[in-house]
Design a protein around this nucleic acid. Structure first.
Lengths: 356, 356
DNA sequence: TAGCCTGGTCGA
DNA sequence: TAGCCTGGTCGA
């Protein structure tokens, strides 16, 4: 099975043996046909699926395909196993809900799945899963080849995967409770629309908040692991940047220090036009914006350049041919941020262990 | 029937005769009881409902309660009629969908309701409905006592009402198509979650885009009706403010003009932290930000003051005791914007008709 | 692809 | 109540 991805141009597809697609939706197939192996001359049925389809997402989840993935060849047996596991989890949830309905305890089930673990707890869980999966132990950016890729993978792959489990449990129960208050599916869709909309809007907004928190938590964990001095959410005259290095005191108007003895680090998982929200006031220090967004245009990068904002991106994104980052001088990788901008240019931001 | 609202403190409730609430959800009732009329000594059952409930929204829709509403006494017969109409519309949609299912033409129905009229068309429809309802003919801000209230009412009440009809048609069909691909409601909720989520996320994002467009369209119509010279979406060195007055040429670096011969007008329905996105570059002109947000904090207003951004709000919001606007010098009403900031201070921004 | 946020959630 | 945007839609 071959899985191709081209994230830069939004085309992203998978050639996959047809027989593996039982249970996946034909709606996401772009085309199907027969493939001849040029070496063995064997013939295989296949389908090509759209990357924006749910099936593509399912495939990525099942095969543990990470955010920086480009293309690879996989062992089909992996997919069968992972799919089966997913099916079991859904089956179990369905059984649990149906049992609650029979027992008249749907309200109690709703209450028990209604509160997700706080973002910090899921973040912790994700880091643990990452360490276990990679056989690593810590997030010290000076010990890693690609600290940015690690943060992206932990937050967008491991943590999101964990989060989706909790989300499905909570929201599915809420949806069932709403659907059941109507006579049939059509009535539920029409008369239940406002209630369903409220549930999914809440879910969507929760995701947005959690995404931001997650990224900040892992960034904080990495700064901590790297013995970098920093303060979170320090209030500086009305503004509240995500991180100030080394601390709030250094950013206060009266502070006597050089330009290289402090910096501001903001974080946004994706930018859109929202990067313009970051502090325009200058505190006699550089401003860095960390992101895992792989879709920032050259135009936007130029504007950030003009505004004297340096973008910090995962190593794989910085090197990616699809992203516009490789050519831009004000875009650096997380590794470069820690090695050059912190350790080399601003050594006073490090606690003694890493003094160079 | 009495309907009270206190938007500032988020409490907002309705006392309504109990017998009118057939068909509304008991889940939104805060309390019920018996009311004695002090004059006639008549006794009535009543319920108090939560303003954040769907029923409150239904009530506001049914009674055509506008965004600037505070409190009033209504004729119950109005509610019965409006409710009946709403019910008929839902019934009709349900019947249409069920018929399509029977005929196997759900796909065709989906295609026919899948494309909403473009924002500009709905905006036009909303203005026509407003003119008809109020017996007015145009949006000339110099002819109106409260032009800001008019824009708010047209966009947030009339147009949103119209939009919701189109939205329900499209989304309900999409939801039915998804629900029907599963065996029962529980399976649909669990296995159909990603598909349902996609539908509602799309709806939510469409709303966000449409809300912004709507506000801009009505603002443009008002500028036009007031014979104010303006240009939309002019590109000024990478930035693209919503409106420049009188035109792009006046904002270009080489333009020879006084400070009062141009201005920038941005528009955001609600602000959150997003007001920080507006152009910080100065083009030797004032910057105004029009909004219908009734929830901007004093803290945020102070920051805007510092950033030299003037907020333009509907007249009822500027006067409202619940909003923080009345005390702030950099918050003006739409009326003041047109009368003072444009006609009085910057008469060259007007075409001849309104020259003062 | 820039700009929209008919925006709720989460934690200072 | 400030800041988040595990973000799609719409029209330059």
């Amino acid at each position: 099975m071959r899985h191709y991805s081209n994230k830069g141009s939004e085309t992203h597809f998978t050639v996959i043996p047809h027989e593996l697609f039982r249970g996946l939706s034909p709606a996401s197939w772009l085309l199907g046909g027969r493939l001849v192996d040029p070496v063995t001359d064997a013939r295989h049925w296949f389908v090509v699926i759209n990357s924006t389809s749910q099936d593509a997402e399912l495939l990525e989840t099942a095969l543990d395909i990470s955010a920086e993935f480009h293309f690879d060849i996989f062992d089909p047996s992996q997919l069968l196993t992972a799919s089966a596991l997913d099916r079991d989890a859904s089956d179990e949830l369905i059984a649990r809900i149906n049992e609650a309905i029979l027992n008249g305890t749907l309200d109690r089930l709703l209450a028990s799945v209604g509160n997700l673990p706080p973002p910090a707890a899921i973040a912790e869980e994700a880091r643990a899963a990452y360490f276990k999966s990679t056989g690593t132990r810590g997030l010290d950016p000076f010990d890693m080849v690609a600290p940015g890729d690690a943060v992206m993978r932990i937050s967008r792959d491991f943590e999101f995967q964990i989060f989706k489990g909790y989300e499905l449990r909570r929201r599915a129960v809420e949806i069932v409770a709403t659907l059941r208050s109507h006579a049939d599916m059509t009535s539920a869709a029409v008369r239940g629309f406002p209630d369903l909309d409220r549930i999914f809007l809440s879910a969507s907004q929760q995701r947005k908040n959690r995404a931001g928190r997650s990224f900040e938590y892992h960034l904080a964990a990495m700064l901590q692991a790297g013995s970098v001095k920093f303060e979170e959410q320090a209030i500086l005259g009305g503004r509240r940047p995500d991180f100030v290095l080394p601390d709030k005191a250094a950013m206060l108007p009266g502070a006597e220090r050089g330009y290289l003895e402090a910096l501001i680090l903001s974080a946004k998982t994706t930018l859109r036009e929202r990067w313009k929200q970051i502090t325009h006031e200058r505190f006699n220090s550089a401003i860095f914006l960390a992101t895992v967004d792989d879709r920032v245009s050259k135009q936007a990068l130029d504007e950030m350049q003009t505004a004297d904002i340096a973008l910090v991106v995962p190593e794989s994104l910085k090197a990616s041919k699809e992203a516009a980052y490789s050519g831009h001088s004000n875009v650096i990788s997380f590794k470069e941020f820690f090695e050059t901008e912190v350790a080399e240019k601003r050594p006073t931001l490090l606690k003694l262990r890493h003094f160079v």
